[in-house]
């Protein structure tokens, strides 16, 4: 057992973790951050993606102890209350989700892409998002949703999103 500290969506959280415990389980089960989904537990589907220091990572491939002290952002951290972030709004307007189980991971991963590359081309977006699986096949709605939101990221490239 080791005590770790995480900054989750701006809040300081601590947890006692086993050496072999993965960040995914600590976030979901210990800290109750349920937007982080588990679907393959081996880094193949990307649904447990979170932002670690702003970069999208698969939380099932990271040991909780490795994340000690890290700044973690989950999809809950992108917006407050009833207002949605521009990316979330764009996902809703384009119908970029069906069952919705993969949606938090896709939104976070797209956010990670657009903060570093707000001028991403179609093929760059497709490539970047291809670490994730949407079985409902809503890719054709997600692509325009991400492109539309990119405008906002370009406008605010210097702001801290």
């Amino acid at each position: 057992m080791k005590k770790i500290t995480l900054n989750v969506n701006g809040r300081r959280r601590t947890a006692n973790v086993e050496d072999n415990e993965i960040l995914l389980d600590v976030l979901r089960d210990t800290l109750g951050v349920k937007s982080v989904k588990a679907a393959c537990w081996r880094g193949e589907c990307g649904l447990c993606s979170v932002l670690m220091y702003g970069k999208a990572v698969k939380s099932c491939l990271i040991l909780a102890v490795e994340a000690d002290g890290a700044k973690i952002t989950t999809v809950e951290g992108l917006s407050r209350g009833e207002s949605l972030s521009p990316l979330q709004k764009s996902f809703v307007e384009h119908g970029a989700m069906q069952c919705g189980f993969c949606t938090p991971a896709f939104v976070l991963t797209a956010h990670s892409l657009l903060t570093t590359n707000p001028t991403a081309t179609d093929s760059e977006i497709k490539e970047y998002m291809s670490g994730l699986i949407c079985r409902c096949g809503t890719y054709n709605q997600m692509l325009p949703a991400i492109k539309e939101a990119a405008k906002h990221y370009r406008k605010h490239a210097s702001d801290d999103l």
């Binding site: 937007s35 989950t74 999809v75 917006s79 996902f91 989700m97 919705g100």
Partner: peptide, 15 residues
């Protein structure tokens, strides 16, 4: 858009 979209996109839909 499906009327449950805001919950899904904020990770607050409960599965």
């Amino acid at each position: 858009p499906q009327n449950d979209s805001p919950l899904k996109v904020t990770g607050t839909a409960t599965y």
